[in-house]
Design a protein around this nucleic acid. Sequence first.
DNA 1: GCAAAAGTGTTGAAGGTACACCCATGT
DNA 2: ACATGGGTGTACCTTCAACACTTTTGC
Lengths: 245, 245
Amino acid sequence: MTRTEARTPASAAESAAEQTRVAVSTVIFTLRRLPDSETAGVVLPLVRRTRDPHAGLWALPGGWLDVTEGLDAAASRTLAETTGLAPSYLEQLYAFGDVDRSPTRVISIVYWALIRPDASTALGDRGDGSDENVQWFDAASLPRLAFDHNDIVDYALWRLRNKVGYSRIAHGLLADEFTLAELREVYEAILGRRLDPANFRRQVENSGTLIPTDRFRTGSHRPARLYRYNQDVELADRGPLDSRH
Amino acid sequence: MTRTEARTPASAAESAAEQTRVAVSTVIFTLRRLPDSETAGVVLPLVRRTRDPHAGLWALPGGWLDVTEGLDAAASRTLAETTGLAPSYLEQLYAFGDVDRSPTRVISIVYWALIRPDASTALGDRGDGSDENVQWFDAASLPRLAFDHNDIVDYALWRLRNKVGYSRIAHGLLADEFTLAELREVYEAILGRRLDPANFRRQVENSGTLIPTDRFRTGSHRPARLYRYNQDVELADRGPLDSRH
DNA sequence: GCAAAAGTGTTGAAGGTACACCCATGT
DNA sequence: ACATGGGTGTACCTTCAACACTTTTGC
């Protein structure tokens, strides 16, 4: 937190407009059964850079901000370009703007998003536009990424773990109807620890956010009741920002 | 959350660099004994705009981002230019970038800051650079502000109220040594409700964040012990972002 | 002595954790 | 029948809110 001398805003504006570019990137999360593991884990898609700086390294999907589009729209667009899917959740994460984070001055407005694993192609290593340069990675063991993207993913994961505790974003990783075991799996994957099924059941039942259906998921054992989310309950999430737009 | 068609990042970059400017503004909070009130309230400084758009209206202090300075530095600088003081706390709030939030396209990276009320000039209506165009307002009853700044202040207040619950930012509104009553006043002003002195004492004592001194604040009644914050305790706050830099 | 704030003790409600236990199904 | 996950009951512990109570000062 350095404190520089005052300068006239007008002149600063000129140079900024000439040399500062604004990018929008998104950390996209979904769940997947990991190899060599009984449990599901958090995975995210990365894009291989084809030009310098950091050509060859993996980076977060993103692109330049267009003058005619809002920040949210730019995040949605770059997200769609990469995965071909609409996110079930999208929220701004942070604006990164250190002078030395890139050879040229770039301000990155970073978003984070959730995608439902059942949305077919999201889980395969390639969708329709089968692309060698997009791959899904285990969030727990990433390679070295371009720019400061490792820091950014760390922060996004921290936000995800935090948020799962006090909001119902887990919803964003499930289909419309789900069993309590499936919901619990989401929490366990994000938090990285097992939860007591009995206590978990009571907590989410008492929260009033779930509506039991009369349908059951039949499997290899006793059928489990299917639930859906109660849309009425608007959990305090992003505060005043939720009601804008 | 609209979804636009894909376009080539390169061409978008050009137009963005030509027509998008990046501003940095800061919502600065401190506490002050409000007129017509027994209790302290949250106040913030605003700047009267001297040119269009919104000439004459009050706005958040800020300025254009210089190419050579980081976002944090830009926030510190504009903050110093307005109040002449260093903040006791500074954190990025959000990046606002709707296309129509200003006649020309402006991305505003907004910060929020805390200032210790004891820092003399902060509480007076004017400091050394006695300035008619900077005034402190009660955060609870603001006039109509320029641009979307009313929304921004609302969000900053929400973040402040939230954060006071799980971090020790109240520290940022107090001198080094303080009584429990003074600390409680801070919480009461931010949360807007009275707290039980007995329970409040136990909660903060058990949190382990306070170190009792052997000094006392003498006043009109029984002297109150002075405390200071325990610097060792690093409460989970901004996660991985705290350890960067 | 009295008012008022500092500080302590006690109680009951509420929520979380651990874990024993019963239920319903496929094999 | 039995293994397994679905689902219920309960006991214990911690935290929090309410409020009665004691202590120490200025006046």
